[in-house]
Nucleic acid binder design. Sequence first.
DNA 1: TCGTTTACCGCAATCGATTGTGTAAACCAC
DNA 2: GTGGTTTACACAATCGATTGCGGTAAACGA
Lengths: 338, 338
Amino acid sequence: MAARRPMTQRMIAERVGVSVATVSRVLRQDESEAQRWASPETVAAIRLAAQAGGYHPNPHAASLRTARSDVVGVLVPRLQDFVLATVYEGIEEAAAERSISTFVTNSFDRPELRRIRTQTMLDRRVDGMIFGDARMEDDYLAELARLDVPFVLASRRSGPHISITCDDHLGGRLVAQHLLAQGRRDVAVLAGQPYASTGVERTRGLVDTFAEAGIEVPAHRIATGGFDADGGREGAEKLFSERPYPDAVFATNDFAAFGAMGVLRDKGLSIPDDVALVGYNDTPLAESVTISLTTVRSPMHQMGRLAMETLLDRLAGKSVKSQLLAPELIIRGSTTGR
Amino acid sequence: MAARRPMTQRMIAERVGVSVATVSRVLRQDESEAQRWASPETVAAIRLAAQAGGYHPNPHAASLRTARSDVVGVLVPRLQDFVLATVYEGIEEAAAERSISTFVTNSFDRPELRRIRTQTMLDRRVDGMIFGDARMEDDYLAELARLDVPFVLASRRSGPHISITCDDHLGGRLVAQHLLAQGRRDVAVLAGQPYASTGVERTRGLVDTFAEAGIEVPAHRIATGGFDADGGREGAEKLFSERPYPDAVFATNDFAAFGAMGVLRDKGLSIPDDVALVGYNDTPLAESVTISLTTVRSPMHQMGRLAMETLLDRLAGKSVKSQLLAPELIIRGSTTGR
DNA sequence: TCGTTTACCGCAATCGATTGTGTAAACCAC
DNA sequence: GTGGTTTACACAATCGATTGCGGTAAACGA
């Protein structure tokens, strides 16, 4: 807040010698609309005065009147997660283009925190919400839908709610096909959290494809856990707690893959000779680490953009629908060259 | 925005049979203050009605009147950067405790974007700003200071402006002492961007310490560049473009170190035998990657918390001062066991 | 008994922008 | 010249909360 109080429409009106109503209409409407309300000279004078005085409309006053805030709330599991940070970049980009601002906050995938933080955003009168932390069974989303809170899901999907996601089942399928082609038959999975559609569907895509090839992936080859390096490490430790070891690991997230790398290193297993490793999301690090990582590229940024655009369309009264974006397999050293 | 219009003080006032002024005072003040304005029965009735109707004050109306928004703007170079995302978590945590909301946005270290996005936040009438993307020579910050915009810097510092940072010079010194103790004499540095105090001071800390040990670090051993894996890779490629190779690399950021790892891998150099590698920030991955990374732990979360608390103190009229937090060296495999 | 606190609370202005309605003046057609 | 339509504005209500200024009644002190 600058020292001198910001200029108001009233000040412009006095300076130009018209009413604030005229100022408002001129400053708000586009050129053609402005002409309907004031003579060209008046329009020019108002614009000039606004320009000269460094006028910036008070959004609180406008929101109070219009009952819109041009702010949307964004909830993500955690911005520390590169994937969600990238999704958010897309959200932000689309928002900026339409003069929308965002409140972002972490829910840490904790239901109470999620409720609280969503509520404070609603209390702030956001126009809508984008959730990056949807759960497969999500009572809260159902509740919000019942209250007619407009929202769109990104990254994870849930039930019938509008969502913009990557085709995770297909992604898992691509990984399976690749691993099968590489001759891997005994695959293990770092499946992520059981409440997140991302990991679940990637896992199912792989398992389904293996099943079609006549190979059952047993339950003990699937470990749930976090989508970060720690989660990957813990999961990998379970998966490699007893022999025979699997000959491939599908980490449904790159960072989990990095965590698994550490475990494989400690076990003295080499990648890809002993174990092939596949990640998900094609994080920049995937290419950089000591062993470059095969992974699935997902359009994270685009997901964010579309989520915001979809929400704004919905707020504008248009009918919108969910979208499944295409994943792309990126083959690197961690699965080839045995 | 829920379907039915939210309840207002007027509705409560009518239901209870008092004026909105009384409702306002009762709902805003703490218990003792409330008693000064209304009888216990009235207070109870108002509270009950508010509770029952699910009353949530309209922040736009309050802001319009009070000229405060209880929102602060946060600008970071990029949330994709784990470090800044963590700083932001600290900011958010401190903000939530004091019922403050935040607008966060990426500036991508681009000056024009920074101006634009800061301006839109000021237009939104934020009460203050936290900058995570300060530059060592920063005209814009000087300009904002002149306009009396209240702000605090986090992570990077600049000139006389209030900042909460890690003692990066000391961090660089710790790294230097460790490398010297390990017998490394020919060190190279991935220094980060020349406009970011973080990398510059970490580099200087190392260079100073080597100089005190009688070892000059020549200019061609210092590469500037981004704080991400790509930046690290590019920098490392320069540093290892011709022999003799350095026997140690100090990456002033963990992710740059990971990028460098890829280059060392491609060059067939082993860590730490041929080259010792040190990162900075103690990212979770540092421990997980195939070769665990020696690094410097910095209190990222705490930096964020303190930045927000300092800003709020400043907004409350208290006098505040810059703080330098302590770094801690974490020794792992990438520098030991030659 | 009368003036003075004290407790409780209302009135109304205010913040800045938006918007429905009112209205002079100008312009047009016939 | 009369009636009707534009043009170009102004007026004033409105959004919801905050807050300075009073105001009434009961209690209290002298």
